[in-house]
Design a protein around this nucleic acid. Structure first.
Lengths: 227, 227
DNA sequence: CGAAAATTTGACTATGCTCAAGGCGAGTGG
DNA sequence: CCACTCGCCTTGAGCATAGTCAAATTTTCG
């Protein structure tokens, strides 16, 4: 029942009947992962895709020297690895837990079969994929046209909005990981954040961020898409 | 019949019956565009999506100062703007012709209706969206982890492959546009290409490129994803 | 052939990366 | 309960890539 409860509230499966959900739940495998565990490696043939039930997963590309470009960090309820189901058949990037997690695995065939017979699921899936594309487009824009402080400002604004617009909130990922998401080095992120503190825009205590001057922060972020 | 001929050979519509194609063709609008004409602007509500029949279209984001991040350059047969149909309802970026073109417009409702009734079309569409995501992931990786010469080398290798692996081929876009695609400035691209010429890797005459030392070029591009 | 667009080149600057070292904090074993 | 260790973060110094501005040059098209 745990599995069904997790999927029942996801946008991806919105509009499915209780019966359909039960059917899906029956083919899903629920598996625990430790922090830092590799889920899959880029290029591996995919037999299905995953949904985060608990914990957090990063999707990333890596350079030989160990640097990483973080494409996504997914939390509870979010699906990942679907791309491989529909095109190419192999995972397009690496996936690793960043916390102790619990993941659901949905086999490819089961998904394709259901999509073929249920237009709602198909349209949900397309909406999900389209949303990702939009996000990536924003990321490419920001990497190409903006600098680190602007990207950071945009991230902080968005993070605040996700916490209902609170001025003070906690980052839910480590700063090193955030640096990877912003496409920069840990050191550069640290300095950029330091400068914001100096200028009185924000206060920082560990992962706790307090926005002191939202107006300036927004001005800095102007025109930068959500990451 | 022109419209039907164009769509009949696209991956997106593969597997559709002749009858279905005729039906689609009947709701498609065929429209000519001059070079440099705006097709749509980011944020505009989308009433449907487009397919390039002839010519070439760039999809891009732009900064207030005029700099551009080119997300795609689409040629004959390629669809664009679908994201808006499935999610959000507005176009995620700007679109402009870079050559005199002829574009097909497919209204949203017609597409959604057909997808709902035809799983083949739905799966084709998901494959197309997934392919884009893969491409974007590669672009983000290369922007984050690689430098201009490496990105350029990867582009040249790919361009050569698209021309059946010929050592000598013609770029089908202007160099300024290429710079935008590689996420760099015209001047930087020019210098990077100049260095490759100095080092005897390639010869350049206007848009004509000749690969002289494919091995070195590949070594330089190593690990960089296709853009 | 001439105007406009695209490209190249030069000089300068700056953003951000790398390498290196030091600090902080949480969890752990003694 | 405390000292220790490990992981994570910060700070400093130097350097390299690439961006900007400006101007010369080439190419494209009408």
């Amino acid at each position: 029942m745990f599995v069904k409860n997790v999927i029942a509230h996801q946008a991806l499966f919105a509009g499915l009947t209780d019966e359909q959900l039960t059917g899906l739940a029956s083919v899903i495998v629920d598996k625990p992962y430790e922090k830092g565990e590799v889920i899959f490696v880029e290029g591996t043939p995919a037999k299905g895709f995953y949904i985060v039930a608990q914990g957090r997963v990063k999707i990333f590309k890596s350079a030989p020297d160990g640097r990483e470009a973080v494409l996504h960090v997914f939390g509870p309820g979010e699906p990942f690895g679907e791309v491989a189901v529909f095109q190419g058949g192999t995972f397009p990037a690496h996936a690793m837990t960043v916390e102790k997690s619990r993941l659901l695995f949905l086999p490819r065939d089961a998904l394709v079969a259901r999509i073929s017979s249920d237009p709602t699921l198909a349209l949900n899936m397309m909406a999900a994929l389209s949303g990702r594309l939009r996000q990536f487009a924003g990321k490419i824009e920001s990497l190409t046209l903006k600098e680190t402080p602007q990207r950071l400002a945009a991230y902080l604004i968005t993070a605040s909005e996700l916490k209902d617009g609170a001025d003070s909130f906690s980052l839910d990922i480590a700063k090193g990981l955030l640096a990877g998401m912003l496409g920069t080095a840990r050191e550069t992120l640290s300095r950029a954040l330091g400068r914001m503190v100096e200028e009185g825009m924000v206060a920082v205590e560990g992962r706790q961020i307090t926005i002191l001057d939202r107006t300036s922060l927004e001005a800095l972020a102007a025109g930068v898409e959500t990451l």
